[in-house]
Each structure stands twice: as structure tokens, then as C-alpha cells.
């Protein structure tokens, strides 16, 4: 199997697909593994690896196609003379394109950036935040437990929410984030996390859009065929034969 076959496989398209088809496949995959979807999730790392893989595959295929098939590789490469007119031109174009793409797909909930600007009311918050970013949730929890009930402000609720979220305790996390949001609605970070969870709870935004066939219009889809199946497929088998 050649190198490019592997790239095509990653994007899930055939080597004979048109550029548009490849672009479409890339878009839907990029949406699927987008860092915003996995923000603050324990799987964020795996998702970003996958994203890199897809980006790499897409770039390689597009470069190869632009340069007329396997440019710079071991295959014979013919260029029209006028293409050699300015050798840097094609490359710079490719580079700028790549940059816009990366800009478009980088996360806008970049927590590190916010972190620098923010000065915490309490010094303990910085410490616990560092633990959370490292993934050491027990230590972060230990620090947060030292806060008295009167000291528990938005930041405290937010950090507790992050810990619950990473541990999969979703109801708790939702309550913490909504408390953080209530105490400080103008904080971008709190609002972002609260929004994400609220959208997922009420399914108000298209987080599920690419998940399966959700465009089923008829109500009958909700009907259970469970009882039919329970008698060991016999009935369905008969039906199959009649059809």
C-alpha cells in the first residue's frame, strides 16, 4: 500500500474522488474532531492527535494533486516551463492557505490565553488551576476543599465543575458551571462551559448533527420492535421469506 492510499483511507474517500469530495470529507471530519467539541474533556489529547492526522492527510493529498501527482517524490514529475517561472509562488500560496485553515480551526476557548490575563482573588486558585491543567484532580480537589463556604465564588464553582466534568459526574458538573455562570455572567470561560453543557442537555445546537441518521421524520421510528425480536427472530424470518 502506497503512502497516499493511507492518507485517502484516513479521510475515508477513494483515490479517485474529486477535490470537492475530499474537501467535504475533510470538513466533516474536522468538525467531528474539532478541539471545541473536546474542550476540557479528558480525551482532548486523543482528539487533537486525530485532528493532526487528518490535517496532515488532507495537506499531503492536496499538495500532491496541486503538483500534478507525487511531486518531489520518487515518481517522474513533469512541469510546464511557465510553472517554473517563480518556484516559490506555489509554495507560498499553499502556506498562506494552510495558515488560514489552522486559524479557522484553532480553538477559541483557549484557556491558556485567558489564564494569563486573569488575576485571581485568591492565591490558592492559581495552584489548584495548575493541578487541574496537569490532570491531577485529587490534589486540586484537596486545595479547593480548604475554602470556607463563604469564600466559594464563581471561580471555585468553575474549578469544581472542571473536576466533576473530567470525572464524568455530569449532573454535578452542570450544577457547578451554572452556579459559576450565575455569579459572574460576563466571564467568558464560565459562560463557554455553561453554554456547552446546556446545549448538550437540551440538544439545542447541532452537536449531534453528524451522529447517525437523525433526519427521520416518521414517528414510527420510535416504536419498539423488542417484543417481536424476543421470540427468537422466528416471525421476522417468516416475514423475510414472504417478502
Amino acid at each position: 500500500m502506497g503512502k497516499y492510499d493511507h492518507y485517502y483511507q484516513i479521510l475515508g474517500v477513494s483515490p479517485y474522488a474529486s477535490d470537492d469530495e475530499i474537501k467535504q470529507a475533510y470538513r466533516s471530519l474536522a468538525k467531528k474532531y474539532h478541539p471545541d467539541r473536546y474542550v476540557n474533556s479528558p480525551l482532548a489529547e486523543s482528539a487533537s492527535e486525530k485532528m493532526k492526522e487528518i490535517n496532515n492527510a488532507y495537506d499531503s493529498i492536496m499538495d500532491m494533486r496541486k503538483n500534478g501527482g507525487g511531486a518531489g517524490k520518487d515518481s517522474f514529475n513533469y512541469r510546464y516551463p511557465w510553472e517554473n517561472y517563480s518556484p516559490d509562488r506555489g509554495r507560498t500560496q499553499a502556506k498562506t492557505k494552510e495558515r488560514t485553515k489552522v486559524d479557522f480551526y484553532t480553538s477559541y476557548y483557549d484557556s491558556a490565553e485567558v489564564d494569563k490575563k486573569q488575576s485571581y482573588a485568591d492565591a490558592r486558585f492559581r495552584e489548584s488551576r495548575a493541578y487541574i491543567q496537569k490532570g491531577d484532580y485529587t490534589n486540586a480537589r484537596r486545595i479547593l476543599d480548604t475554602f470556607l463556604p463563604t469564600e466559594r465564588d464563581g471561580e471555585w464553582h468553575y474549578q469544581m465543575g472542571l473536576i466533576s466534568y473530567a470525572g464524568g459526574r455530569m449532573e454535578e458538573a452542570y450544577n457547578y458551571f451554572s452556579a459559576a455562570y450565575d455569579s459572574d455572567p460576563f466571564n467568558r470561560e464560565y459562560a463557554a462551559m455553561y453554554d456547552i453543557l446546556r446545549q448538550r442537555r437540551t440538544r439545542s445546537k447541532g452537536i449531534f448533527d453528524y451522529a447517525g441518521t437523525s433526519d427521520c421524520n416518521s414517528e414510527v421510528c420510535r416504536e419498539d420492535f423488542w417484543c417481536l425480536e424476543a421470540c427468537c427472530c422466528c416471525l421476522l424470518d417468516i416475514a423475510n421469506r414472504w417478502l
Binding site: 467539541r37 480525551l43 482528539a47 455530569m170 449532573e171 452542570y174 453543557l197 448538550r200 442537555r201
Partner: peptide, 10 residues
């Protein structure tokens, strides 16, 4: 829904 969304992510 909330649990399911996390399931799909994984």
C-alpha cells in the same frame, strides 16, 4: 442527553 453527548465524544 448530557451523558449521551459525552458517550458520542468518546
Amino acid at each position: 442527553n448530557l451523558t449521551y453527548s459525552q458517550l458520542v465524544l468518546a
